[in-house]
Structures are given as structure tokens and as C-alpha cells.
């Protein structure tokens, strides 16, 4: 099974390996979330969605459905 960002637990890290959504990937890459870059899952919002990750030296929040399009390897 391909793992994606939502499979990480708080504090865990992974490396971006690809995307499953072309349109979204362009925006994510502009925000520094590129293949080969390390991401860390920080915490989720009170209702479980959206989540906060650390990537390229800053904190980015994105919705679960957006996070699910980011493939990672650990």
C-alpha cells in the first residue's frame, strides 16, 4: 500500500515521494512540499481536520483530503 501524509502519527517524519493529484501537486510544490523533501506531521486541528506539518523549514496546514494526495516513504 502506498503511504500518504495522513498515515503519519504526530511527531513522525517522512519523505515526499509523489502525488496523486496533479492540480494540487503544483500548488503543494510551490509551497515547498516537493518530492525528496522531509515532512513532519505535527498535530491536527481540534476536529481532526485540517492538520499541521513542518516542511521546508516552516509550518503548513492542509486538509486531510489534501494531505492524502501526498505520497511518502519513511
Amino acid at each position: 500500500m502506498i503511504r500518504n501524509l495522513t498515515h503519519l502519527k504526530p511527531g513522525e517524519q517522512g519523505i515526499v515521494s509523489g502525488f496523486s493529484d496533479e492540480e494540487l501537486s503544483v500548488k503543494l510544490m510551490e509551497m515547498g512540499c516537493l518530492p525528496g523533501v522531509t515532512v513532519r506531521y505535527n498535530f491536527s486541528a481540534p476536529l481532526g481536520d485540517p492538520i499541521c506539518i513542518s516542511v521546508s523549514g516552516y509550518e503548513l496546514s492542509l486538509r486531510l483530503e489534501e494531505a492524502a494526495t501526498v505520497h511518502i516513504v519513511q
Partner: peptide, 11 residues
């Protein structure tokens, strides 16, 4: 149009 969040949480 799709809806996005993709928001920076600054320190």
C-alpha cells in the same frame, strides 16, 4: 472550482 486550505502557520 476546488476548495483548498494550504495555509502557512507562522511562528
Amino acid at each position: 472550482d476546488r476548495s483548498y486550505l494550504l495555509l502557512e502557520l507562522p511562528p
